[in-house]
């Protein structure tokens, strides 16, 4: 059995799978990091991703064009983001409760939308509907490098976007005026307000960006990896992405490492399942979530979230 386990690590395909399985987590977590830095709890990523997944399948299935699917997924993600921004920023509602509501709402809505669009009624649950899915994009030259090429440069387009997002988000946060505003809003919204920064505008923009990225992450699951849809397809990946932000202590590098850890756990459990070594698959499916728990307990220590984290901004209250 040990031999079999070791053989997993000897296979190039395993490392490529890590990169692949990390992508949805990375897109959602890195896309939401700006909003998090601005002091917003983006616990609603799960719902954004799920709407993205169903938006992707609908767009692709109806038009027959996978890129229309991607577009619809992003729009769906932004829509959830807009509702969340209205609730969290304008109304000032409790952010965790609002997120839970949106996540459950997205679960219900996606379960209704999918059969409604594909008009299969009961049948839809049993039969798998195939729609056009994303093509592989092999990067010229780099993709031909032995080992490295297969691991890093022979993937679906969103994979590259995900990994580019990490340095881009870092650059925005620490090297642009706009990023300075985002950090200031998260740490001391009253101070930001007194120098004429619109706290609401910054938070709206970052939440909508989180929605767009999470929507793309959802599309990656439905019309990227599979080309088909299952109910509750995200299966808690939005929550794991959130955990990666906590694990990464709200810093781009940390978040990247966090998503890679959970991506690896996911890739590993899939491979162990395939070995067929008598462990019930339910336990293996649990594996990434168990890793999440252990990582949070043992590695995080005292987290350092933005000072205004989760609290709505009210001008005259200060």
């Amino acid at each position: 059995m040990l031999d079999q386990l070791l053989s997993i690590f000897a296979n190039v395909e395993f490392y490529a799978a890590i990169i692949r399985m990390t992508t949805p987590l990375l897109l959602a977590a890195m896309g939401s990091l700006l909003a998090e830095k601005a002091g917003v709890v983006t616990f609603s990523m799960e719902g954004m991703m799920l709407m993205g997944a169903v938006g992707g399948i609908i767009g692709s299935g109806v038009t027959g064009n996978v890129w229309m699917g991607v577009l619809l997924a992003i729009l769906f993600g932004i829509s959830v983001g807009l509702i969340y921004a209205i609730m969290a920023v304008s109304v000032g509602a409790h952010q965790i409760v609002t997120s839970v509501g949106l996540n459950l709402g997205a679960l219900g809505l996606s379960a209704v939308l999918y059969p409604l669009v594909f008009k299969r009624g009961e049948e839809v649950i049993q039969t798998v509907i195939r729609v056009p899915s994303m093509p592989l994009l092999k990067i010229p030259i780099l993709g031909d490098i032995p080992f490295v090429g297969n691991v890093f440069f022979n993937h679906l387009p969103p994979v590259y976007i995900g990994y580019l997002l990490a340095p881009v988000v870092w650059f925005i946060l620490y090297r642009t005026s706009w990023g300075l505003k985002v950090r200031a809003v998260g740490e001391h919204p009253h101070a930001a307000d007194t120098v004429g920064i619109s706290v609401a505008k910054v938070r709206y923009a970052t939440i909508l960006f989180a929605g767009a990225c999470s929507g793309l992450a959802g599309a990656f699951l439905s019309i990227g990896l599979l080309g088909s849809y299952m109910e509750n397809m995200t299966a808690g990946r939005g929550f794991i992405a959130y955990t990666a932000i906590v694990f990464g202590k709200w810093e781009p590098t940390g978040v990247l490492l966090g998503t890679l850890l959970f991506g690896m756990a996911d890739a590993l459990q899939l491979r162990i399942q395939a070995l067929g070594i008598g462990i019930p698959y339910q336990f293996l499916v649990m594996f990434p979530y168990v890793v999440t728990m252990i990582a949070l307990i043992s590695l995080v220590g005292k987290a350092s979230w933005p000072a205004s984290y989760g609290s709505p901004f009210r001008r005259e209250a200060g």
Partner: peptide, 11 residues
Amino acid sequence: LGLPSPREPLL
């Protein structure tokens, strides 16, 4: 903070 930097949008 809140003002355009000398090399907007870069900080």
